[in-house]
Design a protein around this nucleic acid. Structure first.
Length: 827
DNA sequence: ATCTCCCGCCATATG
DNA sequence: CATATGGCGGGAGAT
């Protein structure tokens, strides 16, 4: 019927931006939007071209051209159906590119960045419906916000960093990592026992438990307040998009298969109701979302090959999100709202409404100080949540923040604490956290720096240094306050996600970071569950990006972006205020407490003004330096690398960490992740085996208790950071331990299972699990796994770790747990 | 056949 | 009530 212009397909046509042609009748093109300030930046154009001109398309186009012999339409109608707009040309992804091309990534406040849906739809000549699809996901990233009926405000990537951070946090709170594990485990089981008596694995229950319904995650974004119009209840596409992104952010290899994503997004609730159609629909939506995210270059399509064939998946290619960044918002905020400490204190989560309204009735009380802030926001979206309450959470992070702003905050914090306590008994933990200090400083990777963690470290970090450093040393020095308390010893637990097996490798004791080109990833987490893996290569897969022009370009772009973002966010010194999700959760609802797995509702973030550009210059390098280097390093050997274990951020070791560690362990029953623990201190101090400080003791204790490490093994803590307020730890520790016991057993069983299956052949592994079997104290054993990525694809990597079987020994208490194989291939 | 995912009906929300 | 939004899923192009 329609006779589209033929061969629109020519590359030229495609490249040409938006629809040069058409619309004879309708309103003429509107000049208005096309102003000098126009969005088209060289970058964007380039970007667009690159992305658009994918090889596939190009080849396709060529074919077409040949066939047509360039004639547009002339000959015969034989061209019949060949109509052009081959499906691909109408793809959401391409459309999205066009859309994005219209606006600058980083619009200046000055320009009018308004988006009129009608116009856009018209100009791009697509149905409005499609525009909604795009806008909705952009909205989920806070790249746009709705102003009113037909109008949206374009924010570009200014908020992206914060958004991602928030999403990551929420994802962590929602225990997506565990959910993913569960799902994978389930699949695994199915494969195995065909009999399938799906053991009523608690796993399920876990998942089902949480079924948290989450609503839109709000982020502090600029004019978000104005977005009064937005939102309503469902927002499914938006929410879905956020969840999808969260999955990437919490996954260690940042690869998420559609299947897994769909399952999680779907039934966050019920056990698998293998509702086929529902699943299908979900997948469709995910594709839609993925297309947009791909256009944003946040993800790219890959395939994961597992035992059962290859499945479509996507790999995160966007900026990595720092684990601990909690400080970011605060920092920003503080700058923004210097006066009201309280406000500044509020960090995302605190402000949150319940994203995940867990079934439980959670009654949060809003902290007075927050009320004002929240109030306005709430008005805007009052209608949105039918939810009666918009709980505001205040948590430990606040306390932490105190450190930063000692004087001012003090009172506030005090208040906060009281309130918290009042709210829930569970809050007790919070106290602990506050003492913890958090300074992120970059860890010196290879070069151990003698100096104190403080600012010193950060200063000259090589590119590889951790991003965490987020704050430049300069800042640190500037605001000494930040490091109020002595640094706490920070230990980090490294674990491997079973599901995402990747190469595991040993890490060097010295913590050298190496960009692991191939290694994708092991997960490294700080105790408090923040992942520190900045190191992972972006190109992650062992792919060598070098030759691909596109990639290189993207890389560059990325760099640019990163630096920018980092600069923004690093306005302040490093304080890693970490917040503990755990704590938050605990206090949030008591009921859920019992099941450790229960999810707690999280809130949405209240938008704070976004940070202005402050001194960006100073830190350009810190944050993502690692990435940059990584990118460059693409040429590096395919081998899986060493797992960089270092934990850059010195976080206070808080109790939460303990909780978390166990959780992680227990959660991944399937393959069980290894939990290597390291202290970042080692970086500074050459010796790893220094005497344990309290924190390390606790940690060791915990680990031992859980059975992850042998009694003899000890995890060193960072000397510098030592004074972690350990005081209360015992309680917490015990507490967590208790919870974990059950889990412990399961974990073991799982391990055994693995062994049975032959996945683990190592005695070592077992022995390591046995507390009774002491091993060399200083050298815990590692169970290495064969993870492999099989060859075949560019991505394939073999585990570098030398001795194939878990014989490797890793210097400091590192435990690696075996995994299943998994291959990732591009495209 | 499977993977992608476009198209657009039609229920809802908004104004 | 007229529109603006946006679930949803059929079904077809791409592989």
């Amino acid at each position: 019927l329609k006779t589209p212009l033929k061969q629109a397909a020519t590359s030229h046509a495609v490249l040409t931006e938006i629809q040069p042609d058409c619309q004879p009748l309708t309103t003429p093109p509107k000049p208005k939007e096309i102003l000098p300030a126009d969005p088209w930046t060289p970058t964007s154009n380039l970007k667009m071209l690159i992305s658009v001109a994918s090889p596939e398309i190009r080849s396709r186009e060529q074919r077409r051209v040949l066939s047509n012999s360039t004639s547009e339409e002339h000959l015969s109608g034989d061209e019949y159906e060949k109509s052009q707009p081959s499906r691909k040309e109408k793809s959401l992804g391409l459309l999205c590119h066009k859309f994005l091309a219209r606006y600058p990534d980083y619009p200046s406040a000055a320009e009018n960045n308004y988006i009129c849906l009608d116009e856009v739809a018209e100009e791009l000549s697509v149905e409005r419906r499609r525009i909604y699809d795009i806008v909705n996901v952009l909205e989920s990233l806070h790249m746009v916000s709705r102003l009113a009926k037909n109008r949206y405000a374009w924010h570009g990537r200014h908020n992206l960093s914060k958004t991602l951070q928030a999403l990551r946090k929420v994802g962590e709170e929602n225990k997506y990592t565990q959910q993913i594990q569960m799902i994978k485990k389930r699949e695994y089981e199915h494969e195995f026992d065909s009999d399938g008596e799906r053991n009523e694995d608690m796993a399920r229950s876990f998942v089902s438990n949480e079924h948290s319904e989450m609503s839109f995650v709000e982020l502090p974004g600029i004019e978000f307040r104005a977005a009064s119009v937005n939102s309503r209840k469902d927002k499914s596409l938006r929410v879905m998009s956020q969840k999808f992104v969260m999955l990437f952010l919490v996954s260690t290899p940042q690869i998420v298969s559609l299947e897994v994503a769909a399952k999680i997004l779907i039934g966050e609730d019920q056990l698998e109701d293998l509702d086929k159609s529902k699943f299908k629909t979900k997948i469709r939506r995910l594709y839609d979302i993925a297309n947009v995210l791909s256009s944003l270059q946040l993800i790219k399509k890959v395939h994961v090959t597992e035992e059962r064939g290859r499945k479509p998946a996507f790999k995160w290619t966007g900026p990595e999100v720092l684990p601990n960044t909690q400080g970011t918002i605060l920092e920003t905020t503080s700058m923004t709202y210097p006066p009201s400490v309280s406000e500044s204190i509020i960090s995302k989560e605190q402000c949150s409404k319940n994203l995940f309204p867990s079934r439980g009735k959670q009654n949060f009380t809003r902290h007075p100080s927050l009320i004002k802030l929240v109030k306005s926001i709430e008005n805007d979206r009052r209608k949105i949540q039918s939810a009666p309450t918009s709980p505001v959470k205040i948590n430990a992070s606040i306390n932490q923040n105190l450190a930063v702003f000692p004087s001012k905050m003090a009172q506030v914090s005090a208040i906060t604490n009281q309130q918290l306590e009042g709210q829930s008994k569970k809050a007790k933990e919070i106290k602990l956290s506050r003492s913890a200090l958090e300074c992120n400083f970059s860890w010196s990777e290879v070069v151990p720096k003698p100096e104190p963690p403080r600012a010193a470290a950060a200063s000259q970090q090589p590119a590889l240094t951790q991003p965490l450093a987020g704050c430049p040393p300069s800042h640190a020095s500037v605001s000494p306050v930040i490091l109020p308390h002595t640094p706490s010893g920070v230990s980090y637990a490294i674990y491997l996600h079973p599901s995402q097996a990747h190469t595991v490798t040993t890490y060097s004791p010295s913590f050298m970071l190496q960009p692991l080109p191939g290694a994708n990833v092991t997960g490294i987490k700080s105790i408090n569950s923040k992942v520190l893996n900045k190191i992972t290569t972006e190109e992650g897969d062992n792919q060598i990006a070098t030759e691909d022009p596109t990639k290189s370009l993207t890389a560059n772009e990325r760099l640019a972006v990163k630096s920018e973002t980092s600069s923004q966010r690093c306005l302040k010194r490093p304080q890693a205020l970490q917040d503990n999700n755990l704590i938050k959760r605990h206090r949030s609802d008591e009921e859920s407490l019992d099941t450790s797995l229960t999810f707690f509702p999280s809130g949405y973030l209240i938008p704070l003004t976004q940070c202005t550009h402050g001194n960006k210059a100073s830190f350009s390098d810190k944050e993502k330096p690692g990435l940059c280097s990584l990118q460059h390093t693409t040429y590096s050997p395919p081998i899986a690398g060493v797992i960089p274990v270092a934990a850059p951020e010195l976080k206070a070791v808080n109790i939460p960490a303990f909780h978390i560690t166990p959780l992680n362990i227990m959660l991944s029953p399937t393959s069980i992740a290894a939990a290597p623990v390291l202290s970042n201190s080692s970086l500074n101090s050459s010796n790893t085996s220094s005497a344990q400080n309290p924190s390390s003791s606790v940690l060791n204790f915990t680990l031992q208790h859980v059975g992850l490490i042998t009694a003899g093994v000890q995890v060193p803590a960072n000397p510098v950071l030592q004074h972690v307020p350990v005081s209360s730890q015992p309680e917490n520790l015990s507490h967590s331990s208790e919870k974990m016991n059950l889990q412990e057993e399961k974990v073991r069983q799982n391990i055994l299972q693995l062994l049975d299956h032959g996945e683990l052949s190592r005695n070592n592994f077992l022995s390591s699990l046995q507390p009774s079997a002491p091993k060399e104290p200083q050298e815990p054993q590692t169970v290495t796994e064969h993870f492999f990525r099989t060859p075949g694809g560019p991505t394939t990597v073999s585990s570098p770790s030398a001795n194939s079987d878990g014989t490797d020994r890793i210097s400091q208490g590192t435990l690696y747990i075996p995994q299943r194989k998994l291959e990732v291939s591009e495209d």
